[in-house]
């Protein structure tokens, strides 16, 4: 299990990286953490002619606050997200999600840009991005493009990105202190890719849900928010019954398939269990952002 031959470029700045990428077109691949790419290269499922390593570019690994947004550089590691105090304070759900990825050794290397660009339907971070209403910025020699989370993911391993683009930044709106949140994953083995990942963000005013965001990953080929269920929650008073109803309704939007890990029916059942639990957790969490 050894890689086929390739050339490796190690640009020091984003401009060089972009022109290299532009020049080599679909024969080149970006490498950041390598935690998804290298296994496929080792198995020769991917045989790129060139790799462009972004790890030496200063200024792509950061977490900062600007106005009411948290800005995250494309080469920021999962471990950075998991341990960042800014994220803990302003969008803790993202830190939680990052902490659910694989194991520490994976999180040291794996990056937010790599995970989102890779768009594995079972991946953890897309669920967080959608729930948090984040944006993705991509850069190419032609300039910068910005996508809402909803516009970014197309399906299994496909996104809105062009081949000559680099995912340079992720933007997460600051979550108000009054919000509640929850993030959870179901795995067969500790640290394994999730069978199911659920993210919830909720705001309640005067005992009524005024904002709800619910994302379920790992089931459908395209991870999406369940907008219908969100709407069903809005305007209602939080209660166990409501959350149960909402969880059951969520299942209508899921099209699970059976595979070696679990049957479709079980997955669907677990969507109900996890969504209900997540909604309850978010509700109990209300007002705890940043604490």
């Amino acid at each position: 299990m050894k890689p086929s031959s390739f050339e490796m470029y190690t640009p020091n700045n984003i401009e060089d990286a972009l022109s290299l990428l532009d020049k080599h077109g679909d024969e080149a691949k970006i490498i950041t953490g390598g935690q998804s790419l290298v296994p496929t290269i080792n198995m020769r499922l991917a045989t790129p002619k060139s790799l462009i390593d972004l790890n030496r570019i200063d200024g792509l690994r950061y977490i900062k606050k600007e106005d009411n947004k948290i800005l995250i550089g494309g080469v920021t590691r999962h471990h950075d997200l998991e341990t960042s105090s800014l994220i803990k304070e302003h969008c803790p759900l993202l830190g939680l999600a990052a902490g659910c990825i694989g194991h520490l050794a994976i999180r040291y290397r794996g990056t937010i840009g790599g995970s989102l660009a890779h768009a594995d339907p079972a991946a953890t971070l897309p669920v967080a991005l959608l729930t948090l209403d984040g944006k993705v910025k991509t850069t190419s020699v032609n300039g910068v493009r910005e996508f809402d989370a909803e516009e970014f993911f197309y399906g299994i391993f496909t996104t809105a990105m062009e081949e000559n683009e680099i995912l340079t930044e992720v933007e997460i709106p600051i979550v108000p202190k009054e919000a509640g949140y929850s993030f959870s994953t179901l795995t067969r083995i500790h640290g394994d890719f999730p069978l199911l990942a659920v993210g919830v963000l909720m705001e309640v005013e005067e005992e009524k849900i005024v904002k709800a965001r619910l994302t379920v990953g790992g089931i459908n080929p395209l991870t999406e928010r369940i907008v219908d269920v969100e709407e069903m929650l809005i305007g209602k008073k939080p209660s166990d019954e409501l959350f149960y109803e909402a969880a059951q309704s969520s299942k209508d939007f899921m099209e699970p398939e059976s595979d070696i890990s679990a049957s479709a029916e079980y997955r669907l059942h677990m969507v109900g269990v996890y969504v209900e639990e997540a909604l309850k957790n978010a509700w109990q969490n209300i007002g705890k952002v940043g604490n």
Binding site: M43, I189, H190, D192, F193, I260
Partner: peptide, 16 residues
């Protein structure tokens, strides 16, 4: 065979 990697052939860890 559908369990040709350790991603599919899931071995229990210390947590299990």
């Amino acid at each position: 065979i559908l369990t040709g990697t350790l991603m599919d052939y899931t071995c229990p860890t210390s947590a299990e």
